[in-house]
């Protein structure tokens, strides 16, 4: 069976560290990798809209000398005719060497991996997991802080449906001496299973609060998230909760001078545009890192060494 990336815990800490090292090398020596995936094809199957993730996968493959095919909405695939995820992926795995897929249903990439003959990368499955965003986040933290341990990280916003949060909490729980501060409205708290599996079982300290301003001075990293309209069954709940946290330059006055602000993007209004000029805003650098770590991941899953 092909090697897949469905959940960030599919990768060991050593493998993550290797991917980060490869990404760093790609950043330093891009020319070395420009033909690494010549004659290889990446299929991007996006059953749900995306800007960054799809384009970064495509850009990553093109920068490795490979080519890309795929679709960017379910309506332009045979899903619209009632085809199952398994059959779609089985078909595409006859054409492509590796598949990156995003799907609104949780567990769809796992279902795909049961039938695919080529590696499957989960590019986001509903509110569940988004492991390549996690790799992007880890590379960004590594580049901003020079390490992946010994810091306090605050997660702010929608921690219930925020799949990037779930994956990053799971990934960071395997590194040493990280303190977690969970900032969310009561209705959007981190799911119990994530707290139990990633934090409680490992005896990792965490605090939960609804008040961002009271905890911001203790943070080394602040991971902001968007309240996602598409995750709510009820529009009223979305409207009530969407503006729970808005990060402004004023709120950052009490933050550490070396704070790093991350956001998986897209943002709506949870980070004021005025914050973009603050050198602590790392989210645009984070976008760029997403391409490099995906290049490293494609190489790894295709078994290509440079």
């Amino acid at each position: 069976m092909a090697r897949n990336l469905i959940d960030i815990v599919d990768l060991s800490v050593e493998e993550i560290n290797e991917l980060i090292a490869t990404a760093e090398d790609i950043i330093q020596h891009p020319a070395k990798y420009q033909d690494a995936c010549a004659h290889k094809q990446l299929a991007t199957l996006f059953f749900e809209p995306s800007t960054r993730t799809r384009l970064s996968f495509e850009s990553a493959m093109l920068s490795l000398g490979g080519s890309v095919l795929g679709f960017s909405s379910a309506s332009s695939s045979s899903t619209a005719k009632g085809e199952t995820v398994g059959d779609t992926v089985h078909t595409v795995s006859c054409y492509a060497d590796i598949i990156a897929m995003r799907h609104p249903k949780e567990g769809a990439p796992f279902a795909a991996a049961q039938v695919a003959e080529v590696p499957i990368i989960n590019a986001g499955d509903g509110g569940h997991n988004h492991p390549t965003q996690t790799l992007t986040d880890l590379l960004t933290i590594h580049r901003e802080k020079g390490r992946l341990d010994h810091f306090t990280i605050g997660f702010c916003g929608d921690l219930k449906f925020g799949r990037t949060v779930h994956s990053l909490v799971s990934a960071l729980s395997r590194y040493e001496n990280i303190k977690f501060v969970l900032i969310s409205p009561t209705e959007l708290k981190l799911p119990r299973y994530v707290k139990e599996e990633a934090l409680k079982k490992r005896g990792i300290p965490y605090t939960q609060t609804t008040d961002l301003e009271s905890v911001i001075p203790q943070l080394d990293i602040l991971y902001m998230t968007r309240v996602q309209r598409e995750r709510f069954f009820n529009e009223e709940d979305y409207l009530r909760l969407k503006d729970s946290y808005i990060l402004t330059p004023e709120k950052l006055e009490s933050a550490k001078p070396d704070l790093s602000i991350l956001h998986p993007l897209p943002r709506v209004n949870e980070i004021s545009v005025a914050v973009d000029k603050d050198p602590r805003a790392a989210y645009w650098r984070q976008v760029k890192n997403g391409k490099y770590i995906r290049m490293a991941l494609i190489l790894k899953l295709l078994g290509i060494e440079v």
Partner: peptide, 12 residues
């Protein structure tokens, strides 16, 4: 879980 793929594809 109504969001699970097995809810919309019960043959899995």
């Amino acid at each position: 879980n109504p969001r699970c793929i097995t809810a919309s594809e019960p043959q899995l």
